[in-house]
């Protein structure tokens, strides 16, 4: 069964990335959907309220089977088209029309805030930096270190994430209500950690862009 939430997220993120970067890669849709989910947790949503799950792949990229199915379904129904190889996607006019309709649905609209905040980080941070930073996220980091897939938003990693978010909340204070601010502060912190870790391990600088 098609997940309405994953379908909505896929179309909204594809639209948003399209406006900021041009066409969107499928991996970027998964990345920003996961970031949006984390931002909902930042605002005290239980992780289960996101209504679909993520896994961390061994390269540190987040992946959701529901999102993948939704993207495949959107490609099939013409809401998205593949415009380049490999997997660069573009929202069609039909997809746009559906997205507009779905934005008006009350059961999906609470997600919009998090999805848009996640995509808005692209205004201030390069996508490569965001990808590198997310690799240091407490759930994804172990997948990279162990070089094996992990379920995300479970156990100790979730506890660690709450610790991060407590610290970010204290840092940004009242500005936390503009989600883009805590999101950017947190990603910058993660990127900084990635750079230090990389320097410590290999003496080389982390590249982004």
């Amino acid at each position: 069964m098609l997940s309405p939430e994953a379908t909505f997220d896929a179309l909204l993120i594809a639209d948003s990335i399209q406006q900021k970067l041009g066409d969107a890669a499928e991996g970027e849709i998964h990345l920003f959907a996961y970031l949006a989910c984390l931002l909902s947790i930042f605002e005290k949503w239980p992780a289960s309220l996101w209504l679909y799950t993520f896994a961390g792949l061994q390269n540190g990229a987040p992946f959701s089977a529901e999102l993948h199915n939704s993207i495949a379904s959107c490609l099939n129904s013409g809401d998205l088209v593949a415009v380049a190889i490999p997997d660069t996607l573009r929202l069609t006019s039909v997809g746009c029309e559906k997205l507009t309709f779905m934005r008006g649905l009350g059961s999906l609209s609470p997600r919009t805030r998090y999805l848009e905040a996640a995509c808005s980080t692209l205004r201030s941070l390069p996508v490569g930096l965001i990808r590198t930073a997310m690799g240091m996220e407490p759930g994804l980091r172990p997948a990279i270190i162990a070089r094996s897939a992990r379920s995300l938003l479970t156990g100790a990693a979730l506890d660690q994430l709450y610790d991060h978010f407590d610290a970010v909340s204290k840092t940004v204070g009242n500005q936390a209500r503009h989600l883009i601010i805590p999101a950017s502060v947190w990603l910058s912190y993660l990127f900084d950690t990635a750079r230090k870790t990389d320097r410590m391990l290999s003496g080389t600088e982390v590249q982004h862009g």
């Binding site: 069964m1 098609l2 997940s3 309405p4 379908t7 379904s73 490609l75 099939n76 129904s77 013409g78 809401d79 088209v81 573009r90 069609t92 006019s93 039909v94 559906k98 059961s107």
Partner: peptide, 28 residues
């Protein structure tokens, strides 16, 4: 019920404007 209606909505809108070939013709 919502998922079923959502599915129906998607499939109802699938033909013919949503067909990939038609969508490609309109877009590209």
């Amino acid at each position: 019920e919502y998922e079923e209606a959502f599915q129906e909505y998607f499939s109802a809108r699938q033909a013919p404007r949503s067909h990939p070939l038609v969508a490609a013709a309109l877009d590209k």
